[in-house]
């Protein structure tokens, strides 16, 4: 039994080099521009919502939580209608990064695993996409919080 890894590691390397030379490239500039404008548009909408709450008597600080709720609701709604995946298809990170993208990453598995029931389906699979972001996001927050405490003291 001749393991093929031993036979032709050079041949394999040549092949991989050839493949990476011939491989169609990602349209980086186009993707970046789309991400900028889609992400920017979502942020503008968020800003508009925040202004709306400020018009109705909330301070800038107070207006942030209700704005977040509205944007998450909007992301969830667009996901439910089957539109948000198209936003990200063109917008890339411009669609994934804003809080609407977070809503998408929660609602999509919820819809998907409904067929496996409410407990082992939706309940267990709800965080399959957002889970790592939450876990490491919280871990990072603890570290940053600790550093802040050490550097600037209490208060």
């Amino acid at each position: 039994m001749a393991s093929q890894a031993k036979q032709g590691s050079q041949k394999m390397q040549e092949y991989q080099d050839m493949a990476s030379q011939m491989r169609p490239r990602k349209p980086l500039l186009k993707n970046a521009l789309w991400a900028f404008f889609v992400g920017g548009l979502i942020s503008e909408v968020g800003q508009g919502v925040e202004w709306f709450f400020m018009q109705h008597g909330l301070s800038a600080k107070e207006a942030t939580p209700p704005m977040t709720v509205v944007m998450i609701g909007l992301g969830a709604l667009l996901t439910g209608l089957g539109w948000y995946d198209r936003v990200v298809k063109h917008g890339g990170m411009g669609g994934s990064l804003p809080i609407t993208g977070f809503a998408n990453s929660m609602v999509a598995p919820a819809m998907e695993f409904r067929t496996e029931g409410l407990v082992l389906g939706v309940g267990a699979k709800l965080f399959t996409v957002a889970g790592p972001v939450l876990a490491y996001g919280l871990a990072a927050a603890f570290v940053v919080g600790l550093l802040r405490l050490l550097i600037t003291g209490g208060a």
């Binding site: 491989r23 169609p24 490239r25 990602k26 993707n31 996901t79 439910g80 089957g82 948000y84 995946d85 198209r86 936003v87 990200v88 298809k89 890339g92 669609g95 994934s96 993208g101 998408n104 990453s105 609602v107 999509a108 598995p109 819809m111 998907e112 695993f113 399959t128 996409v129």
Partner: peptide, 17 residues
């Protein structure tokens, strides 16, 4: 898609390959 990739409605970009 469900088994090998992501939920259907999750937005992500496919690569050219």
């Amino acid at each position: 898609e469900r088994q090998f990739r992501f939920p259907i409605e999750l937005g992500y970009q496919r690569t050219p390959t």
